[in-house]
């Protein structure tokens, strides 16, 4: 049985680098699908590409909000609108502390809304928590044996 990956949608090179570093420390880097913007994420999830063929939908999406082109909220809407992905947990991970962004995220079905801390230690802690969350989701799915919706 294949592990369902964690998907990171992040356009900021620094933040993607630091997040991947934490993934690496947690030994899960091999199970990460990286999207450098909204287009790449949509393409992976709904294009004729990887996920459709392999059936490897992410078990958790870590989603940045402010991205050029297709923004985080748009990606979230697409995920929720598609039957295949509508139940995938999506954690919004953003530097925005705007109440409107928070409300919009939950309105579109975000699982959680986490603000990126300025401190690298707190930032890393938040990523570790999300990794733990992903492991929990994967684990419970393996037990139930329904590795793909």
């Amino acid at each position: 049985m294949q592990t369902q990956p964690v998907m990171l949608v992040e356009d900021n090179d620094f933040d993607r680098g630091l997040t991947c570093f934490v993934f690496d420390q947690e030994h899960v880097l091999n199970d990460v699908v990286l999207s450098r913007n909204g287009e790449e994420a949509v393409d992976y999830l709904f294009g004729d590409g990887d996920s459709a063929e392999s059936g490897l939908l992410p078990a958790l999406v870590i989603l940045d909000l402010n991205m050029p082109g297709i923004g985080g909220i748009d990606v979230l809407k697409r995920i929720r609108a598609d039957q295949r992905t509508s139940r995938v947990p999506v954690v919004v991970f953003t530097s925005s502390d705007d109440a409107g962004d928070r409300a919009a995220s939950f309105a579109e079905g975000a699982t959680d809304f986490i603000i990126k801390s300025g401190s690298h230690r707190k930032f890393a802690d938040a990523v570790r928590k999300m990794v733990a969350e992903w492991l929990t989701v994967n684990c419970s799915k393996s037990k139930r044996g329904d590795d793909a919706d």
């Binding site: 900021n12 620094f14 933040d15 680098g17 630091l18 570093f21 420390q25 530097s95 990126k116 300025g118 401190s119 690298h120 230690r121 930032f123 890393a124």
Partner: peptide, 17 residues
């Protein structure tokens, strides 16, 4: 200040690593 945060986290995080 907003834009400085990501590179700064990177500096701190990797220096500590």
């Amino acid at each position: 200040s907003h834009d400085l945060r990501a590179p700064l986290r990177s500096v701190g995080g990797f220096a500590e690593a």
